[in-house]
Amino acid sequence: MAEELTIAGFGGQGVMVIGQLLSYAGMHEGKNVSWIPAYGPEMRGGTANCSVVISAEPIGSPIVTEPTTAIVMNRPSMDRFEPMLRPGGLLIYNSSLIDRKPERSDIRVIAVPAVDIARELGSDRVANMCVLGAYLAATHVVASESVAECLKEVLPARRHNLIPLNIEAINRGAQLVEA
């Protein structure tokens, strides 16, 4: 069964990085993966988003239209992608910023106060790693160790000093689900 994700938020919230980390980790685990960003007019002003597919089988369409998981970092993304989720799908949302609760009752929901946790850790910018950690703990689609190893490939060299902070944020997100 293919895992088909939509990851969305404002530009700058690191949603593309979440998608790239999952793609690298999936590839290193020997799975088939695809990653594609939304490009063009829909990026401007509103939401940035990417589609990621991770599967043991060859991947058909790389464009996700009925996600099995939606990770949303802001309200416009929640409004847009909650209705598209497959029944029984997983919605992970950044409850620090999104001021409403999901409406659907046929999906699994995980609220992650990602910005609050990230601030506790000392940097707003790892909020994306908190939701990623929650996602990994909830699904085990790829191992969090694989993701941690991929940080080196995805983050530019000048940010490698932040890898421990990113890993801590992943762990904090995971604890939320495991607790």
């Binding site: 790239q20 793609s23 088939n32 993966v33 990653w35 594609i36 960003p37 490009y39 991947i59 790389p62």
Partner: peptide, 10 residues
């Protein structure tokens, strides 16, 4: 096309 140009795969 734009999809093939923009997408990442192994």
């Amino acid at each position: 096309d734009g999809v093939l140009g923009q997408m990442m795969e192994p």
